[in-house]
Design a protein around this nucleic acid. Sequence first.
DNA 1: TATAAACCTGCAAAAAGATGCAATTATAAC
DNA 2: GTTATAATTGCATCTTTTTGCAGGTTTATA
Lengths: 254, 254
Amino acid sequence: MHQVQAHMLKRERQAFIMKQVNLHNRALSADLGAMLNVSEDTIRRDLNELAEAGELIKVHGGALSKSYHYDYVPSSTYAFSEKTIIAQKAASLIENGMFVMIGGGTTVRELVRALPQNLHATFFTVSLTTALQLCDHPNVEVIFLGGKLVKNSQISVGGEVISRMNDISADLCILGTNSIDGEGITDSDLEAVQVKKAMIKACKRTAIVTISEKLGSTQRLRVCELNDIDFLITELSPDSPRFSNYTQSGMIIL
Amino acid sequence: MHQVQAHMLKRERQAFIMKQVNLHNRALSADLGAMLNVSEDTIRRDLNELAEAGELIKVHGGALSKSYHYDYVPSSTYAFSEKTIIAQKAASLIENGMFVMIGGGTTVRELVRALPQNLHATFFTVSLTTALQLCDHPNVEVIFLGGKLVKNSQISVGGEVISRMNDISADLCILGTNSIDGEGITDSDLEAVQVKKAMIKACKRTAIVTISEKLGSTQRLRVCELNDIDFLITELSPDSPRFSNYTQSGMIIL
DNA sequence: TATAAACCTGCAAAAAGATGCAATTATAAC
DNA sequence: GTTATAATTGCATCTTTTTGCAGGTTTATA
């Protein structure tokens, strides 16, 4: 580990601490004490002073960088700006007269918000929140596919829904997802998976909208393979290297 | 699965948990414990703290993202205190194990809010907002009867819905209304009327919830006669003279 | 209704923190 | 250079926080 000169002024030491904290976003009192060859009491006093001066955030065991904000702002959706970009791209896929099957989730919420007011289209959905939001669009027709509701995700599931979908042939399926990797899409709720499968089957084309953070994550149940997907939409530029695992299946990355 | 650095500050751990929850909308205590290399007890304590701080919703087995839940805004409700009284009375009609068909509107919203958390019942509805609200009750089953959505009332209508209702026989139908007079209930939207008729037909008993202000008003389309109604619930005392026109049909006034 | 998982409570050990004090060191005045 | 003063530091002691575990209870679900 680091080794530091013997006699150090308090000011220098605190500068060193700040450097460590800003570099790694965090620092443990014990580590700093060892690096600087001073007692943890001294480190603690330094950290308290720096916290007092607003330079860092003191926590039990050490300190965190000020930029390390976990002060989550409620009412605003997670990764809002990314989802806005995604929404713009996805909205471009939807044209007047289309029949669109659409899922739920916060990314889809932003997408619905981004839809132009003069859009003339028919939407099918199983998500209560998506349906509610679509009701704000004057020129779209909204069909809710009813059934038993899952409380957490606020979507309808069950054989009822799925058999209804078999009667539908829509132009585009838009799904958010919790996990996508080189194999395809996965999820953790069996009933939701069954519904998503039916949605994909009922549509000519499928678009997946997700923030890039979810690329590479996997859950227990499989929704579909990569080559069931026609469009993958994230906030990244389509030529990002992060898509190297996803291109061979022939999907279009937006 | 994920692997995380050895010594993690509590705050960092909680930030990680928030990220997981926001990313996947839900997280299991067991998974988090494994990912973070700490006991599930620690995870539970973290989840409780984060729930206390209002950052997520703690459930049995893990936690859910907050971005999904119905935020109730009482300020927008007209005649709030009257509707609260009505809600209390109407809630007393609903017992464990019942099948209830329920409509929409702000009076019904207060009713749903007044339902006890431990109520064990099955609800059928065509109202998106009522359905969403019912989703916050842990012990009820919610069935949404899907169809074409009417945008301003946010209910589903159409032959689809009505034919589905013919297959149902519920114990109680709870409807709000805009107009009730000595003849019965009337409304102005044909499609909504058809659905309400079907709802009443599908239930053994019908309860009407409305503020007294609406007593005596009439609209163009008839929903039902007075003797189709079993309970009339307003904020007034049952012996109020305002009910003189309504008693002869044999309905019970609460 | 049985059963396993999840939960809660209290407890104990370990880690971190606070505080008072003495020793040391820096700073400035002389 | 010396000395007085103030700041800094480490240590001993006590308090608080964090964490895992044992146990008994509750909850979900087949």
